[in-house]
Amino acid sequence: MKKIFILLFVISLNLSFSQIEIDKYRTEIANLDSDIKFENYWKQLLDIDQNILVNTKDHKKADSISSSLMVRTALLFEIHGDKVYKPNNLVPILNLSHNNISESSIVFWTILEKCKMVGGMIDTFGGTFPAYQLECVSLDFYNYTLNQKEKEEIYPDLRKKLNQIKTNGIVTALIESYNYQKQLYTLKELKSIGKWSLQSFKNEILDESFEFVKMSDNNIYIKQNNKIQKLIMLKKRKGVKIFKIENEPFGWNYELLKNGTLFLKDDKNEVLIQYTKA
C-alpha cells in the first residue's frame, strides 16, 4: 500500500507539480477517523519526504512537494486538532527543515508550537527546542547560523517574534506563500548590484556566494543559487542604503555602503557579519 501511495503521488506530481490539490487533501484528511489511520497517513507523508522530496533536484518541483506536505500537516491539525500529533512524530520538524520558501517557514511556526505542547521528539531533535527550529528559520532567511553558544541567550526573543506573527489562517497563508514563490520564478535578472562570499559564521568564509540583483519587476532581490528574496529599502542616506528581506521575522537588515561593503545587522544594530566581496 505504501509503494502504491508513493507511485500515485509521483504520477500526480509529474502531471501537475505546480498545483496543490487542497480540496483533495482536505477530503482525504477529513475521512481519517482512527488512530491507526492517522498513524498511517503520517507515515505516508514521511515516506514522501524521505523518498521523493530529499531526492528532488528540480527546485520548482521541490517547492511544490514541500508546500503540499506542509499544507497536509496543517490540515491534519486544523481538521482533527492537536490529538492528531504524537510525541514520536518527526514529520512537522522535517516539513520545516526541508522547506526552501522562507515565508512558509514563519507561517508554519504555529504548527511547531503545537508540537512543542505535546512534547516528545521535538524537545531534543537537533538540540533542545527551539535551537534546531530557529536555526532552520535563520538559515532560510539570512543564511546565518544560530548554532553558536553566545546566540542561545536570544532564542526566547526570536521565538517570541515568531509567535507574534499573525496570518489569515495557516493553510491559506502557505498557499499564498507558495503562489508568490511561483511568481518569483517568472522574473528575469536585469543586472547584478554586488556580489559577496557567503558567511554563516562571522569568521568563516564559504566557497559559495550571493548577490544583490535587480529583476525585471525593477525591484532589488538577494539571490543565492536559484533562490531570490525581495529586498525592501528601509533608509537611504549619503553613502548608505539599508535593506531588509521582505517579511523577515527578526528585524535584521543589510547595510550596503557606497564602496560595496555589506553588513548583516541585528535588531539592535549590532554587526552579525561583514561580508567579503566575491
Rank of each mutant, 00 (worst) to 15 (best):
S200G: 07
D63T: 05
V10R: 12
I65G: 01
V171Q: 00
N51M: 09
Q183R: 14
E270V: 09
I170Y: 07
K3S: 13
I11L: 10
Q50L: 09
F250N: 01
L45E: 06
K161R: 11
Y25M: 09
I205V: 15
W252M: 04
S177R: 02
M1H: 12
L112A: 10
L264Y: 04
K161P: 01
V118T: 11
L174Y: 02
S209K: 14
Y155R: 10
I29W: 07
I93T: 05
S97T: 14
L134T: 10
T73R: 08
V271P: 04
K277F: 12
K236E: 15
T27F: 14
N51R: 12
L69T: 06
I93K: 04
N253P: 08
S104N: 12
D58H: 04
G239T: 08
D23H: 11
N99A: 05
I222V: 08
D33P: 00
K83S: 13
Y180R: 10
S64N: 02
I48F: 01
T56C: 09
I175Q: 00
K265I: 05
T276P: 01
K265T: 04
S104E: 15
N147L: 12
W252Q: 03
K83P: 06
N218L: 11
A131M: 14
I29V: 08
E270R: 14
K277E: 13
F250W: 02
F243S: 01
Y41T: 12
V54F: 03
K223Q: 11
S66W: 00
I245A: 02
E152G: 06
D266A: 05
R72A: 02
K230H: 09
S192D: 05
I6L: 11
D267E: 13
G127W: 03
Q133S: 12
N259R: 03
I220L: 02
E135S: 02
I48P: 01
N247A: 05
A173G: 02
E211R: 07
L139I: 14
K268N: 13
C115N: 11
I4Q: 13
L96V: 03
D63M: 15
D157S: 13
V71C: 08
E21H: 14
T73M: 05
S68M: 08
V213Y: 04
N31R: 12
D35L: 15
I11M: 05
G120M: 09
K61V: 13
E153K: 15
N31K: 14
T276C: 08
K24D: 14
L264Q: 00
E208Q: 15
D58G: 03
L45T: 03
E21K: 15
F129W: 05
